[in-house]
Design a protein around this nucleic acid. Structure first.
Lengths: 359, 359
DNA sequence: ATCCTTCGCTGATCCGGTTCAGTGGTGGAG
DNA sequence: CTCCACCACTGAACCGGATCAGCGAAGGAT
């Protein structure tokens, strides 16, 4: 199964390899007549450029890399990554650039992967995700000279620009909505404190809470798991002054909290409103269905790819923002129940203390 | 940021490029003393082989390809793919082979991608998923000579072997379990009829139903979506002789059916047992938690990679099976309620006919 | 008619490895 | 001592494109 090369085409057309290269790449150096003749022959012979040969001589690999440093279990649970990947693919399209994906067990391995990819010239640039507060990936990548784009929060760098979603605006929208419904005590159940996006959303939440004059606004950091979301919800709901609304950093924790509320005999949304971050099938399938902030995740990935395209050409690129996330309200959020006592009625009984059901 | 090449090492060591190549690849042709000296220099200079150069001369691309032909929305909803990818990655490890992923909008595009990958020499082989009954991918790949492995069902081919999970055994286990609980009428809500795995599971289901002597065993094919799962459940449950147990081909449909059962006022598992295929967070988070068949999806991907490794070396490989899937029973399945009438009590009322809640 | 420019194309080189035919030197067998 | 086998290594070709200097021919200006 011999594959056709430009040499075959050159022989067939009776010209030199160089002429074929010019013709097929749309570069000047051949006449239009010759170009169309060569193009026709190439099409007839089913030629496609060898990505490796092109990469070797051109210095480009024709691929972008994405390392995901999350446990496999979390990856499977979070639709975010697949939607992101789908968006990346959509932007890459059928073009000459493909996506190389690697799941990394930890942070150090991730750095090793970047080093290896660079040394092997396997990728032309990488997409960075889940930026941490003290993240050294930016410095490492800058030092080895591997182009990169952050999928996350704006950092104001021109060498490593960011694609970002305006979560701050979404948080404002959510709090305005909750306040309009009469909520005065809101708890945010955030992701890991290490993640910059989680931190920034927490800061935005506290700022918005101060702006709208909430009576109480707390932030609890978790590991994104259903278990920790349930635990956070349980602790908040059995406290002396429980919140009337809770905002979660993903869908899994919100669903887990819904289960906790049901165990505690709390009606949702009568006594407790729940809002998830990241709309998903999960949000729609549970009863009551969960209100959620729907973020343009696919667009997020696509935007990052288009930024990275510019960075690898050597351009100085600035941060870019996706379209705005929107709050999708469903049955899990509603007005505060007027006749609800300040101190929860079940706080005096002991049967709410059920063991967590999440194995 | 000049990257070191074997020429740099050769100059440094005072030997030829060829000697360096022999030394670094552990091939005979250099003395042990020279080899260790060259290896040390390479390590000191931070050398890593250029994957493209190696691919160009060696004829191997150093990558495997995976095309996923499912809508982005389904991809996001199904944890299967991410778990599969995680398993693939784990098997590939930090080695010289990486994974190239492509999401395809349709079947024809998928074939184009294979042609392009082959012509571009971008991948050494591909992993095939979601095999269809009249799938021409096998023939196309065989004709262009691109090594492939099926992730799915055993086909008995040696040129394109299969990695497979023994779903038949799992179906036997599920039906034995349901029969032991007293169920006599079971409906299986399957995936699309086009998918071979869906068909084979349906055939296995009907065979097992005959073996254990079920009173009624029906199969309904769907598109895997929550909507169609809900519709299938609704139709089955309002029929004259409704099933007492339903087995679903994924988790999403089972959860949707749970919502339908609640709308119909059916207790789960009192009046209806539900079993999902593919255990997931979703199964654990809903109330009642769903019994599910947990399949070794990660192992599935890993096994396929190891098969593909052998195929690309030109070996004739036979099908390989993963470890057995297991049935994880939770609150959604239980014994048939003795006092349940054969004709459902709600069939006479009209209020069960709620419109589907899935937008 | 001559010079100069531009066009269209050729031939060679390069990218960074792999691989193979040689080649010089060493050592053992005869 | 000679011959031969073998070892360690060299030099060059090769993979399939990209790129560049150069070259002949055509055309325009003078």
């Amino acid at each position: 199964m011999k594959r056709t090369t430009i040499s075959d085409i050159a022989r067939e057309a009776g010209v030199s390899k160089g002429a074929v290269s010019y013709a097929l790449n749309g570069r000047p150096g051949v006449s239009e007549a010759t170009r169309s003749r060569i193009t026709a022959i190439a099409a007839r012979m089913g030629w496609a450029p060898s990505s490796v040969a092109r990469a070797l001589s051109g210095g480009r690999a024709g691929a972008f890399g994405l390392v995901i440093d999350r446990p496999a279990e979390v990856l499977a649970a979070e639709p975010f990554f697949m939607r992101l990947i789908a968006g990346i693919q959509h932007e890459l399209g059928p073009g000459p650039t493909s996506l190389v994906l690697q799941v990394s067990p930890d942070h150090d391995t991730e750095l090793e992967i970047y080093h290896r990819w660079h040394a092997e010239r396997r990728v032309d640039g990488v997409l960075l995700i889940d930026l941490r507060a003290d993240d050294n990936r930016l410095d490492v990548l800058a030092s080895i000279g591997l182009p990169a784009v952050v999928i996350g929060e704006p950092l104001g760098r021109t060498d490593i620009p960011s694609a970002w979603i305006d979560d701050r605006a979404a948080i404002d929208e959510v709090l305005d909505y909750l306040v309009a419904l009469g909520h005065r005590r809101v708890v945010r159940v955030a992701g890991p404190r290490e993640f910059l996006h989680s931190r920034m959303r927490s800061a935005a939440f506290l700022a918005a809470a101060a702006r709208v004059g909430l009576e109480a606004a707390d932030v609890v950091h978790t590991d994104y798991s259903g278990e920790s979301g349930a635990a956070a919800a349980r602790r908040a709901l059995v406290s002396a002054l429980p919140p009337t609304a809770m905002v979660f950093d993903n869908d899994v924790m919100a669903v887990a909290a819904l289960g906790v509320a049901q165990e505690l005999g709390l009606s949702v949304p009568g006594q407790l409103s729940l809002i998830a971050w990241e709309d998903s099938l999960l949000c729609r399938l549970v009863r009551p269905a969960l209100s959620a902030v729907r973020r343009p995740v696919g667009e997020f990935g696509a935007l990052a790819v288009s930024l990275l395209r510019q960075v690898v050409t050597g351009a100085s690129v600035s941060d870019a923002c996706t379209s705005a996330p929107i709050l999708v309200t469903r049955a899990s959020s509603g007005p505060v129940c007027r006749d609800r006592p300040d101190v929860s009625p079940w706080a005096s009984t002991a049967d709410w203390f059920v063991p967590p059901r999440f194995p």
